[in-house]
Amino acid sequence: MDYNWDFATLFQNWRVFWIGLQGTLLMFGVTAVLGMSGGLVIGIMRYMKTPILAWPARAFVEIFRNVPVLVQIIWFYYAFPILTGVETSPFLAAVLGISLNTMAFSAEIYRAGIQSVEKGQWEAGKAIGMSFAQTMRRIILPVALKRVLPALTNRGIEVFKMSTLASVVAYVETLNQAKLIADLNYNPIESYTAVAVIFFVVLYPVVQATYVIERKLSRSDQ
């Protein structure tokens, strides 16, 4: 292992990394918000007893959960434009692939949360004259959302890691920029290690926080 470490070029190129990190954060922000809000709608639809709402929601969940995200991103990048005539940028293709996948996964999380609320709460809502939507919004969701918080945080961590897949269609994010630096300076060890460390440093505290949230919630439920 007489390897000459070359971290200097990494620091010289910190701006390249910074641009990549911004791309990662943008991708994460957009896909997390779209995925988790869309997932709530689909999760509620999946819970409802009206087949015309429940069935399309079920099909949506099964399709986008069972097709690998990379296949979705590639499909939206190369196949979708031919089908619709709409050009998809690397950003749009990645946003579609990751958001749809996140919607499907978080829909199941929300549904499980809603189902975990006792039936009596629905009956109580009805007894004091609340409609389905009112009961859902005022009584059921506040309880359900609290219970699914750990699962949602875990999903968020997965979404953050998934943003690296956007590099496959040449969207400018951290991994893509590391590849650029590695190719220009012949230092793949340093640049790829740096990306791994960046992700670890960002996500490790979040993972620790989920443990704390989980413990607190399980205590407050008793």
């Binding site: 961590i157 890691k161 998934m162 943003s163 690296t164 897949l165 590099s167 496959v168 991994l175 590391a178 590849k179 590695a182 793949p188 060890i189 790829y192 290690t193 990306v195 791994a196 992700f199 670890f200 996500l203 490790y204 993972v207």
Partner: peptide, 15 residues
């Protein structure tokens, strides 16, 4: 668990 699998793959392949 906290680093993306694609980064790990590149690391083991290139580094």
């Amino acid at each position: 668990r906290t680093t993306p699998p694609l980064v790990q793959l590149f690391w083991f392949f290139f580094a």
